[in-house]
């Protein structure tokens, strides 16, 4: 399968010269299409020093179809849905824009950049985006609160439903 050859190569590249702030594990040795990524928030971002779990699922048609990426750790961010297994909005990952030669490193780098610089004009969480634009202080306070609540210590990938329910009271309205 051409897809596994490509994924193997990318995995080798990522482990020999790991991209900054990123570490990769395979939850199952037999399944090379599921990656667990631990992303340490860059120092210049408001999410520092949080550690975020990211799940990368390579579809069968990879690299002709983009990988599916979810946040296993909850994060308070305009472009990532405010829930366990938050989905992420990245133009690079849309089917129309995806190029088969794009490497996962590029995608991870784009996500890292999104933590430093959210894109409030293309939001998944409109309320958070509004807050980011108009009340930056409030936004940063909330983002840091999320970090200390969810993004401290060992990253958990197999989040059980309800584990994140503690913050339910603050859940933002989802962008439609």
């Amino acid at each position: 399968m051409s897809s596994s050859k490509r994924i193997t190569k990318e995995l080798t590249d990522c482990t020999t010269t790991p991209p900054p702030n990123i570490s990769i594990t395979l939850p199952s040795d037999s399944n090379i299409s599921l990656w667990h990524i631990t992303l340490s928030a860059p120092a210049e971002s408001v999410y520092y020093p949080g550690k975020f779990g990211i799940i990368v699922q390579f579809p069968l048609e990879y690299p002709f179809k983009p990988p599916q990426i979810t946040f296993a750790t909850r994060i308070y961010h305009p472009n990532i849905t405010n829930e366990t297994n938050g989905s992420i909005c990245l133009s690079l990952l849309k089917t129309d824009n995806w190029k088969p030669s794009t490497k996962i490193v590029t995608v991870l780098e784009a996500i890292r950049q999104l933590l430093v610089e959210p894109q409030p004009d293309d939001p998944l969480e409109t309320r958070i985006a509004e807050q980011y634009k108009n009340e930056r202080k409030e936004f940063e306070k909330e983002a840091r609160a999320y970090v200390s609540k969810y993004a401290k210590g060992q990253v958990k990938f197999n989040v059980v439903d309800g584990a994140g329910a503690a913050g339910e009271g603050q859940q933002a309205g989802r962008a439609s």
């Binding site: 002709f64 129309d96 088969p100």
Partner: peptide, 23 residues
């Protein structure tokens, strides 16, 4: 494979770009 997917699945024709990233 790339062209087949673009034409058959996405119905794209006039704007199929080179498969290279950013090209």
């Amino acid at each position: 494979h790339y062209l087949g997917q673009k034409i058959r699945e996405e119905g794209e024709a006039a704007r199929i770009q080179c498969p290279a990233e950013g090209c």
